[in-house]
Write a protein that binds this DNA or RNA. Structure first.
Lengths: 148, 148
DNA sequence: CCCTTGCTTGGAGTGCGCTCGAACTCCGTA
DNA sequence: TACGGAGTTCGAGCGCACTCCAAGCAAGGG
């Protein structure tokens, strides 16, 4: 083991303000059904199963009857996936990242590279959107003064 | 006619810095072939034809043999469409906007509403991306200090 | 005159990210 | 014991935004 274990690096909580619990249930009895996770994450149960099928989820625990029981860690992971989805990152790339996570700490470097590239991408997109905002402001202004 | 004519409101140039011509050719001999516009806009000729088919382009002028001849105004319109595309606006919504433009100045109000809504949307997306950026920074930082 | 190049049309095909349906199991309550 | 509700798997289907194809036409060069 290096400084941090793999799990803590890869499932860092998304909102670590300290105030209020980060999760609906404390660690220990964090065994959510798929419909609970659907409600929490906003994703459909179908989508959650599909994410698992394509390798976008770490292997989810099962109850004795084979039903999925999601953990707080799974929720954290879904939080990260949600953020990455907002950036427009293709699902295939997220699956790639998930694979790196599964391969263990030897892939730290590669994962960091991926995140760095993603960050630059996000920065570019923010700039693009700000340009667009300027255009919209300008046109709105024209419409406003046109029938003032 | 109100203060401004429809054309000037709807095909405002995107980059009006004044320095350098806004278009490859000056108004007057602005009759671009489809492949020229493809090169300029970065869209494929296929996509340009498709845009016209679905009503996302104002009617494009034709040569005596029926070939498309795009104008500087068309280029401006494609510039706006390009910006709106970056915001993730569905093509159907852009078609709606194009329809409003075709319907004339009576739709100024509705067009402005649409742009206002889009602007709020863009603002939200920028905020989301900035949140995501923070998450990425945080994770990158963890990876950096982990094997420092 | 033929050949190439670039354009035209309508319609079919593609890739992505879900989304849904069918058929089944399991569990809790009446 | 019957039933409803929530879960399971696998595979098919869908909506979007292109992307491509086939067949054909017009202009210019050798």
């Amino acid at each position: 083991m290096t400084v941090m274990d793999t799990a803590s690096v890869d499932t860092e909580p998304m909102n670590c303000q300290g105030e209020g619990r980060r999760h609906p249930r404390p660690d220990g009895d964090d065994r959510y059904t798929i419909s609970e996770v659907a409600a929490i994450s906003g994703l459909s149960a179908h989508t959650l199963r599909w994410y698992e099928r394509i390798g976008l989820m770490p292997h989810v625990d099962r109850s004795h009857t084979g039903q999925r029981r999601f953990s707080n860690k799974d929720l954290d992971w879904l939080g990260l996936v949600g953020k990455l989805r907002l950036t427009g990152m293709p699902v295939a790339d997220m699956v790639r990242y998930a694979e790196l996570v599964r391969e263990g700490e030897s892939t730290f470097g590669e994962r960091k590279e991926l995140l760095l590239a993603t960050r630059e991408d996000v920065r570019r997109r923010i700039t693009e959107l700000q340009d667009t905002l300027a255009v919209l402001d300008h046109k709105i202004d024209i419409y406003t003064t046109a029938n003032a």
